[in-house]
Amino acid sequence: MRYSAQVKPISYLKANAAEILLDLAESREPMVITQNGEAKAVLQDVASYEQGQETLALLKLLALGNQDAEARRIRPAREVIARLKTKSR
């Protein structure tokens, strides 16, 4: 993804906030905001942000699972299911 087309100065954000929010929601591409020529912030629509957070959460779960597998803290699925069934009775 190239961000170069979506780089705007903070003055543009101040003058066009409502339009920018509509564009973000429609395009679902982030916008880089600059101040004095330097990138200072990234704006994105809420749906994209939430999707990114869900993706990060899943990646964290996978990483934790990999750590458990490497540390040999795993059990066969049948064993876990059987134990859960006996607990639910």
Rank of each mutant, 00 (worst) to 15 (best):
L13Y: 01
I20E: 01
N16I: 01
K40V: 01
G52S: 12
T34G: 05
L43S: 04
S88F: 05
E26Q: 15
S11E: 15
E79Y: 03
Q44Y: 07
S88E: 09
V46F: 11
K14D: 09
I10N: 06
A39M: 11
D45L: 00
V32A: 04
E50H: 04
A69H: 06
K85L: 14
I74Y: 05
S27M: 11
N36E: 14
T86V: 13
E29A: 10
T86S: 14
I10T: 08
L64Y: 10
M1C: 06
L62H: 09
L62R: 08
D68G: 05
L64G: 08
R28Q: 15
L22W: 04
E50F: 00
R72D: 09
E54N: 02
D45P: 03
L21R: 12
R72V: 09
V32E: 00
A69G: 02
M1A: 13
E70M: 11
V42E: 02
G65H: 12
N36I: 04
A63L: 05
L21F: 14
D68W: 03
P30K: 01
A69F: 10
Q51K: 15
L43V: 04
G52F: 04
L64R: 13
D45Y: 02
V80P: 05
E26D: 12
N36K: 13
I33L: 05
D45E: 02
P76V: 11
R28T: 00
R72K: 13
Q35L: 10
L22C: 08
V7D: 07
V7T: 15
K85F: 09
R2E: 09
N36A: 13
R83N: 11
L22Q: 13
S4P: 03
V32G: 08
L22G: 09
N66E: 10
A15R: 14
L64N: 13
L58E: 14
A18I: 03
R2Y: 02
L84W: 01
E79G: 15
M1K: 08
T86E: 13
L56F: 12
P30R: 06
I74V: 15
S11I: 07
Q67N: 07
I74C: 07
R2H: 07
P30H: 05
A69V: 10
P76N: 10
A71G: 05
V7Q: 10
T55E: 11
E70S: 11
V42K: 04
L64K: 15
K40H: 04
